[in-house]
Design a protein around this nucleic acid. Sequence first.
DNA 1: CTGAAAGCGCTTACAG
DNA 2: CTGAAAGCGCTTACAG
Lengths: 328, 328
Amino acid sequence: MAELSIDVVAKAAGVHRSTVSRAFSRPEAVKAETREHVLRVAEELGYTMSPLAQALRRKTSTFIPLIVPNVTNPFFAELAETMSQAAGDRGYQLVLCVTNGDTGQTAGYLTAMQSLYAPFGIVAPSTRVDIDTLTQFDLGHRVVVIDRLDDHPTVPTVTVDSRRGIQLAFEHLRSLGHRRIGYVSGISGTHTAQDRMDAYRDLADGDPIVLDSGADTEAGERAAAQFVAMTDRPTAIIAANDMAAFGVISVLTAQGLRVPADVSVVGFDGLRLGARFNPALTTVRQPIADMGSIAIDLAEQKAADGSVGHVVLEPELLVRASTAGPSA
Amino acid sequence: MAELSIDVVAKAAGVHRSTVSRAFSRPEAVKAETREHVLRVAEELGYTMSPLAQALRRKTSTFIPLIVPNVTNPFFAELAETMSQAAGDRGYQLVLCVTNGDTGQTAGYLTAMQSLYAPFGIVAPSTRVDIDTLTQFDLGHRVVVIDRLDDHPTVPTVTVDSRRGIQLAFEHLRSLGHRRIGYVSGISGTHTAQDRMDAYRDLADGDPIVLDSGADTEAGERAAAQFVAMTDRPTAIIAANDMAAFGVISVLTAQGLRVPADVSVVGFDGLRLGARFNPALTTVRQPIADMGSIAIDLAEQKAADGSVGHVVLEPELLVRASTAGPSA
DNA sequence: CTGAAAGCGCTTACAG
DNA sequence: CTGAAAGCGCTTACAG
């Protein structure tokens, strides 16, 4: 079980250590026959290379940091989960870095992961990413961001088409007969959040009803309170994300309003949780799993040939039970 | 920014490499004056030791795997989040290992983390942990489990008192006037889940109404369907965990039943999400943050003196809006 | 195609 | 208390 090192295998196979190394790391560089023999011996011994030693020598490791503000927001949780999968499949280990939106923490993680020779990192921001902050760190130059970020020239990005998503929600509501449609932006101050808000404003042509533009967890709750206090209420609400939608519905209902009988609500994210909300949430689904693996692809691509990709994914409308035609 | 190694610092400070090493790793072993000088020089240079190199030499690293079935269940998400905090505070890096309940994956993570010289690991099981499986791996002997596990002689554990939690829920419901109280066990087949179920059965003295004892995500939904089909329905339901409670409420409501007017529902977990459910969920809170840091403490303790701790935490009742007196 | 050597950045007996 | 040496487990020019 123990003391299994490259030299042990080399001896057992009757070759030099460097040949064993090549058999594993650069198989083409060794004669097929030799390679197979070495690999077989290694296998029999139950030997695998030490990622630590490899990282130290190569100055590049397989640790990849996923930097997120938190992981209790199911959006980030789903992201973390699918990325952990995708990372594992590709031979990386996902190191979870939770920042609580604190830039200092982000900096700490960046330097820590740097000294771990992380080949690149993934950041899903909770606020507008300050590229200048990121790029103070070496690793900051090898990061892919899950947010729009305007086709940044050096930072690859993955996002879903926010504008399209809001449009989907809007059209769904219009087709149901809604004319006054409110909006609640919640939780984040990312570029993506901005895009969604802008898209809403454009669609609302001249008559936007923005219920709360706060950027924290409680936005949904506050928006609902505002809504209740209004005299000329909208008949439907689009929430910038599912968590905000949950909050809105929760307090709306507590105030005696019925969803969707009195107000329709559509979310944005497509969290699995939405399916078991009460009522099941109509929402714009983001392909979160795809975002995760694409993020890794982009990072590898940039490392390979320097190309900076910007992928924009298509959202999809999930019609469930929180929307209906306007009452009377 | 680059090429900063222990030798660079040694030269700059005019001492030998081993003195620099000691200044950082065994400060008592070096004269105060020397130490301060070395540390100051290092600081000025912006030097920190390479965790990778240290791990390789010491044969122990600061990577600690958190092995969970998933992270989209908010219970595990909250656990991961608080553990990531706790780990970071203590100089560890949390490596997220999502198993999807697959034993093969667990095994893979165990060996991978082993070769990373992980000093120990934390596992939060989704099913009864098979200790024999764990202990096939070296790392499996240095794991702490978040589940009851009967005061295992070699595996430290943290749990909350399940029996007490169910009792809290039960008493709350009784005090509200409920006499027929149903139960839905959901999601997991852990020892903890078993304890909760047993506790319920004991309290229900002779008249347990178990709605669904399935172990998957949909238990809540199925339980609700069963409930609706019953002729002599309970007036209240205890769910073995919050996710199941969400499911129950969601479909109960979709079927036209009102919570809590027609049925009271209490969950178990105390997820933050419950506060913004509709209605806000009455639930038994587990001190998840405490569980995370205690798990690390137990692991360190065992490493230090071999002692195997078993900590049982007290749950707490969180009364919110999903419970009320029985109707008429 | 394979081997011998140097070295990645540290730690830890062992002397002194 | 400090230094010199060996070595953790690898990789990678460099010869041959």
